[in-house]
């Protein structure tokens, strides 16, 4: 009898621990901003990847089309995988892809582009990662879709795959 009480107490306690850890895992990134969809585009100024000149966000998003902001880095292996889908996207005329090179080494990043192709109409450097945080990014890679009203309408965490590519195609149609 005593044993049974012990057992049930232990089991209840362990289940409690399990639930805590399970939830802890799902929110394991301790400092994360909230998902900012349906939000106005942040206003910023950034350095161009190639020329190192400053560009303002207004100038960058001035055309009346859809924009995609893709956060990438040469050290990020999933970025390698999603790259071919970005190449495919870049063929579409309805959209321009803007790359945000996150905490990267410039030479490695250039090698990466030379090797796999350049889907970006413009590439920005984000050496210290502030701009990505401004966008509300969780990590690399991440992709934001910006509509004609300059609002972030959709965001994809992690690499783009076949399925998400189709979703994007639907949105920008």
């Amino acid at each position: 009898m005593k044993n049974k009480i012990y057992l049930s107490v232990v089991i209840i306690f362990l289940i409690f621990c399990f639930v805590i850890f399970y939830n802890g895992l799902n929110s394991s990134n301790i400092y994360t901003p909230k998902i900012n969809t349906k939000q106005k585009l942040p206003i910023f100024e950034a350095k161009d990847f190639y020329s190192n000149k400053s560009i303002s966000s207004e100038e960058l998003f001035k055309e009346d089309i859809f924009y995609i902001v893709n956060i990438w880095a040469s050290w990020c292996v999933p970025c390698r995988k999603e790259h071919k889908f970005l190449m495919e996207l870049s063929k579409s005329e309805n959209v321009k892809i803007i790359g945000l090179n996150y905490k990267d080494n410039l030479n490695n990043a250039k090698k990466f582009i030379n090797e796999l192709g350049n889907p970006y109409s413009k590439n920005l450097t984000d050496k210290n990662g502030f701009l990505s945080i401004e966008f509300g990014a969780y990590g690399v890679p991440e992709t934001f879709i910006i509509n004609k009203n300059k609002t972030i309408v959709k965001k994809f965490i992690g690499p783009i795959n076949k399925k998400t590519l189709n979703q994007i195609m639907q949105i920008i149609k």
């Binding site: 850890f21 895992l25 799902n26 394991s28 301790i30 969780y138 990590g139």
Partner: peptide, 21 residues
């Protein structure tokens, strides 16, 4: 699992943590 790290690695796959848990 990265549950402890505040300096988290981005490529951390939550499936790993759940499996081992």
């Amino acid at each position: 699992s990265g549950i402890l790290n505040s300096v988290h690695t981005f490529a951390n796959d939550p499936a790993r943590g759940i499996f081992i848990l």
